[in-house]
Design a protein around this nucleic acid. Structure first.
Lengths: 338, 338
DNA sequence: ATGATTATTGCATAGCTATGCACAGCTATG
DNA sequence: CATAGCTGTGCATAGCTATGCAATAATCAT
């Protein structure tokens, strides 16, 4: 193991002081161009690169952000993470990634993140977050949540306009001539799913002349399999909805496959279907699923802005909410006119 | 902004020295149980948690691993990352995540990682890596690659047995009575794809009595769309393969959809099809795609072991390769007997 | 009881960089 | 020519914890 190259090594080689080396690498520091050139040359020869660790101690800012994810097998979360990574890097922030299965992992994961002195935490989890959020608040660590309803002095939130999208779904169903609307919810703890359901059910109730029986409700766990199973059980019970709004695309894909497999029903002829997230699979030809695009770019932009604000020099407790409208992407699954 | 709580604060409150606080939090340090109890109590009251940053300076080890990913929209990479995150966390390592689009990003990303003094780098990228790998080698940073053929004194590799799988695919095609085998390759720079293709073509050539015309070859870029387009163009040219081995599942799904859409051909009656990765979508009912499972768990386990070895106290340049056999998962797309 | 051994604790320091401060050298102005 | 102002440089230090070492206390053996 060779000792890593320090700024002092570079200074010696360039014939300057260690301070000069530091200044050569800090933007906007007071240093003569010629000196900087010498330093950079010596640095290149020694393969030196600045060490941010002592800077963290001095400044108290690590420029690392803890990102807590779960369920990357949902393409929506995967692409959100991808987008977030790009955006944070552009903002000069590093990502300390934690994957979480359960609440227990979350707590220990947070301890780890805090040991590394992350400046903030970004999460798309609802799971067990209320307590964790309080812990972070106590430590004055800004938190940015996606699609969650956590509250607290240091917590900011970016949400899709879930309720409005639910209403829109009901309108689309009306224009497709749906007579028996159904709603496939996500897990109870998923706040975004609840909001979508509330919006949809409100939209259906508002049209009780057309839909006196209201909404047929099912529940899944946001996975493909749970969507498939929910519909399989529904068909086995003899129910025959002709319009299905699913809380996310994964379940919608499962549901569509179950309709074909167990009911020989297809979209849009027998059932009109809508999902949420607009994952790539929704656009695959086997599905052609109409979906609400959460506009990940916008969500992530908003998150990064909130983050910047929270990490700004003022440093008071920031607690803001940004709502991003979902964009309806129409495909074959709703291509039916009355 | 309240000043963060330091070990000295805790020491003062607990009536002990700062050293005692440090020892209370280090496993196996020499400290009386009673003293530890007092310290932990004071720490809890003050909401203190150990700060790893100074420890990084002292030990020279950050216990952070740079993870470089690209193409998270491929569910295979997403689940690999998920699995890797779990495994590294169990090994007590943190993940500093970097998402990379192009070679330029890669270089600057590596600079960032190195500034944060990561102990090692894990990557699943082939893109522009040879130069980057040399840079890391110069700095004596261990590198673990997935499915790549990079070499160097500090570089270890975990690969799926791509060539063997290609041979197997040819055998499966034989037992399905395929008469016109086709190969859908990934991008040229993808070493894993090349190996799969070599294996498959070798398997077909070894059976030249049955397949005198060899393999019909196409190329995509590993995306669903490229698989779809490749088959659409193929059908437009009037070609009619009856067995298709795709370098990955995403392209296979696209290919299957194109067969249905543009040729009214279905699997397995008209075309037998195999993919690679065994992504969840391969198991979806709309596809039922036979695929080679890379056994992500095993790959990641191997990677973590290599990492542990590379981070061990001996610390010499480690350069090993671990090969994991792919497991054939048979589904509808090859359910055809002669 | 006494010396030897062990267990526990505190002191002092290293680890590397960014930055305030003072100073040196130089330019411009009167 | 003297002075003021400006630029660039080096010195010294802070930031927080882990750990070697010495000292102290406690336990044990003889």
């Amino acid at each position: 193991m060779t000792r890593p190259v320090t700024s002092t090594d570079v200074a010696r080689r360039a014939g300057v002081s260690q301070s000069a080396v530091s200044r050569a690498f800090s933007q906007g520091a007071s240093i003569a161009p010629e000196t900087r050139r010498k330093v950079l040359e010596a640095a290149a020869e020694l393969n030196y690169r600045p060490n941010r660790i002592p800077a963290i101690m001095l400044s108290g800012r690590s420029r690392m952000v803890g990102v807590v994810v779960g369920g990357l097998s949902n393409p929506f979360y995967a692409s959100t993470l991808e987008c977030l990574a790009t955006s944070l890097r552009a903002a000069g922030l590093q990502i300390l990634l934690v994957h979480v299965d359960d609440a227990l992992t979350l707590d220990s994961a947070l301890d780890q993140l805090l040991s590394y002195r992350v400046d903030a935490v970004v999460t798309a989890l609802a799971i067990g977050s209320q307590r964790a959020a309080r812990m972070l608040s106590d430590l004055a660590i800004p938190v940015i949540c996606f699609n969650s309803r956590l509250t607290g002095p240091w917590i900011s939130t970016v949400v899709s306009n879930n309720h409005a999208a639910g209403l829109t779904a009901a309108q689309v169903f009306e224009s497709c001539g749906v007579t028996r609307p159904a709603w496939l919810a996500g897990p109870v703890r998923n706040a975004a799913s609840r909001a979508r359901g509330h919006g949809f059910i409100a939209g259906v109730r508002a049209n009780s002349a057309r839909w006196p029986d209201g909404v047929l409700e099912m529940r899944g766990d946001d996975s493909y399999e749970s969507g498939y199973d929910a519909i399989r059980r529904l068909l086995a019970r003899g129910e025959r909805p002709d319009g299905l709004f699913s809380s996310n695309d994964l379940m919608a894909c499962g549901a569509m496959d179950a309709l074909r497999q167990h009911g020989s029903l297809n979209c849009p002829d027998n059932v009109v279907m809508m999902g949420y997230d607009n994952i790539p699979q929704a656009g695959w030809h086997a599905y052609g699923l109409t979906s609400f695009d959460q506009q990940v770019d916008c969500l992530v932009d908003a998150a990064t802005q909130l983050l910047d604000a929270a990490l700004g020099p003022d440093g008071g407790p920031v607690s803001r909410t940004r709502v991003v409208d979902a964009r309806l992407v129409t495909r074959r699954s709703t291509a039916r006119l009355i």
